[in-house]
Every structure is written in structure tokens, then in C-alpha cells.
Design a protein around this nucleic acid. Structure first.
Lengths: 202, 202
DNA sequence: CTAAAAAATGAACCATGATTCACTTCTTAA
DNA sequence: TTAAGAAGTGAATCATGGTTCATTTTTTAG
């Protein structure tokens, strides 16, 4: 008879994977993707560097996974608000406002997800998610054009411009490092107003 | 009597410095700041790596110099168009249109200057120049508010949003890799229209 | 308890690329 | 023409950080 050990159950394996992802996300929250190092991730997870390679084929895969997970959460929130009942204008207003407020609240993460320099591996993934954001906005814009609330316009270009405008104003290098709730509410309102004017002006 | 050689004339020194800067700029045009390597810059300039350190204290200084020079050229063009005679609307239209067209034409450089990931050394410089762009736009917006062509709005936030909108739409990852002149003209028109609507809608 | 397989370890290795510096070559005033 | 200093050289060094793998530890079926 041959003695053998069974592999860890999938859940056990996932547990360790999750631990590594969680540590990685923390590091991103603290200092962006540039703050991720195999050594740091391993230390935070109380694990040796070699162990990481049992769960991820490379640092890139780890980063991509962190990116994907975090972005999907944000994306699903955007999707949800976009599809609520109400006029396109109202929905756009709410979607952008909440999008902006979340970005302000989690400025570091928002910057890492939307704008931070990452190596080309992530660029592809980021591109994919930007398209996804833009698609949501674009659909909403088209609805607004249908109802006559928004003027005729190429919806995808406007959607892209909106993403750029919000990103730049909120998390770009020009934005204030911190602002109190009142300030940030005003900032959000101003930038969302800007976007809505662009959408609806005749 | 002590024999001595005189240092190279300033112009001679500048000549070599310029050669290095020119090679560096070429490399940026070809593949962004990430494409700059001391070795490559030296090779292009037909010079040894050590020689570079006679003219620049570090790679960062070289990059910063390239960045600064290229940006100042663009900035002066923006400034010039901003200050032409005409209504604020017309001037804004022309400024943004030309800004966008130059960005499309020199996409790689534009990307490198506006958006490309660079190390923190350059971030400070980039911030400075973004402020400079935004200030030009902001002043023009305020003029427009005075004349009543533009609605009441926080001019600096709008200016920032405009920069973001154009950057994202033109050189962000969503933009088409290349487009023929007709396409790019339409793209420019669409995005500039977006910005002008945001500025002037009541 | 035992042995075989799985899992974990972390020091060594490797790749990249900036920076240095002992040495060679060039320039110029005398 | 010459010697002192300037300029140039590029191989060696350093720094960072990802990846590997021979070895040790843990787990589990029997």
C-alpha cells in the first residue's frame, strides 16, 4: 500500500491566497501599487517569499488580482446606481456624485486604480475596466439623449471625458491633499455640475 | 610658472549638454520616459555613460530637463492663444482645439508629458506645469464669466476638469491608437464641444 | 506511529540599470 | 613642444527587487 497525503482542501488554499491578497491590498491602500514588494507582502502575511509563488505565478499576477478585485467592487457600485429608476439626469447625478465621493474618501486607492503608473501588465487590465466604466456612462448618456434631457453628442466620447474630468479634478495632482467633508462636498458638487452642464447644454 | 588649460567655453559645454538632451528627447518620443536609459542616451550621443554625469548630476536631472523644456514649449503656445484678441469663447475654442490637435499629432510626447508614470522626482515638476496650464484656462474662464458668455462656476475646478477631459479622451488608454486626419478632427471637435458646453450652459 | 507527499522556507541567484572612478586622451597656455 | 588640467571612457560596483530551489517542516492516510 502506498501512503500519501492529500492536498489541502481548496478552501484552505484559498485562505492563504486571500491572506496574501489582503496584505497586498493594504499595501496598495498605504502607498499604491508601487508600494507592493514580494518581500513586504510575504512579511505582512507571515509567510516566506517563496510561498507566494505557490499561489501566484508572479508579482504581476498578484497585482492584477488585487487590481481586478478592487475595481470590480467599484464598478458594480457604479453599475447599480446607473440602473436605478429615475430620469437619466437624476441617475447620472447620483452616479457621478457617489463615484466622486467614494474616490475622495478612498483617495489613495482611487488614485491607484484610476491613474497610478503601473507596469504594462496592468495597463491592459486597467484599459479593460476603463472601457467598462465608460460603457456604463455611455449607456446612460444615450438614454438621456433619447429623452431629450441631454443634447446630441457622441456618448462614448462624453463618457470618456467625464471620467477624465472627475479623475483629474479629484485625484489628479492638482487636487487638495485632504479636505474636510464640507470642502469635499462642494468639490464634488462643482465637478458633477460641470459634467452635467456638458451633457445637457443645447 | 604654472601651466594650465582653460575649461571649455560655455558654448562648447552647452553643445554637448544639448546633444544629450536631444538624444533623450528622441528616446521619449519613441517610447516615453520609461524608454530613457543612461546607456541608451549615451550611445545615441556617441558618448560614454560616465560623460553624462559631467553634464547632469543624475538621470533624474536629465529627465526633468527634458520634461521642462518640452512642456515649456507647449505651455507658451497655450499662453499665446489664450491671450489673442477675441471673445473668451472664441479664444477658448481655439486654444483647446489647437491644444488637442497638437496632442494628437505628438501623441507619444503628449502622453509622456501629461500622463505617463514617472518617478516622484518628475511628479513635482509635472504638478507645477499642470497648475500653469490650469491657470491659463482659469483666467480665460473668468473673463468669460465676466462677459456673461460662461456661467458662474469655480474657474479653477473647471479648468482642471477640462485638462482631465481632454487628456483622457485624447491620449488616455481609451483613445484610438491612430486616427486619420478626418477622424482626429472630429474627435477634437467633439471633445472641445463637450468642454465648451460645460463652460457656457446656464 | 510512519512514510510519503504537500507545503513552507529563505538564502542564493539573477536581471536591470544607475552610478562611480581609476585611467586614457585631448586641449591649451606658455 | 610640453605639462597641467579638463574631458572622456567604460568596466566595475552598487542597489533594488523578483524568482528559484535544495532543504526543512507539516500533514495525513493507513
Amino acid at each position: 500500500m502506498v501512503y500519501r497525503a492529500t492536498p489541502l482542501t481548496e478552501s484552505k488554499k484559498m485562505e492563504c491566497r486571500e491572506k496574501l491578497l489582503a496584505s497586498g491590498l493594504k499595501l496598495v491602500l498605504e502607498g499604491g501599487f508601487g508600494n507592493i514588494t514580494i518581500i513586504k507582502v510575504a512579511q505582512r502575511s507571515q509567510v516566506a517569499t517563496g510561498t507566494m509563488y505557490r499561489y501566484f505565478s508572479s508579482k504581476g499576477e498578484l497585482c492584477e488580482d488585487i487590481f481586478r478585485t478592487a475595481t470590480e467592487i467599484e464598478l458594480s457600485k457604479v453599475a447599480k446606481t446607473c440602473q436605478q429608476p429615475g430620469t437619466p439626469t437624476d441617475r447620472m447625478n447620483q452616479t457621478l456624485t457617489e463615484f466622486a465621493q467614494r474616490a475622495i474618501k478612498g483617495r489613495r486607492l482611487a488614485y491607484a486604480l484610476i491613474a497610478e503608473p503601473v507596469d504594462s501588465m496592468l495597463d491592459e487590465t486597467r484599459l479593460q475596466f476603463r472601457r467598462a466604466y465608460a460603457n456604463h456612462f455611455s449607456r446612460l448618456i444615450e438614454e438621456g439623449i433619447q429623452t431629450g434631457e441631454f443634447c446630441e453628442q457622441p456618448s462614448m466620447i462624453s463618457a470618456t471625458a467625464i471620467i477624465g474630468a472627475i479623475s483629474e479634478a479629484l485625484i489628479g495632482p492638482l487636487s487638495p491633499e485632504n479636505c474636510d467633508p464640507i470642502e469635499s462636498q462642494k468639490l464634488t458638487h462643482d465637478i458633477v455640475s460641470f459634467c452635467l452642464r456638458a451633457l445637457s447644454a443645447k
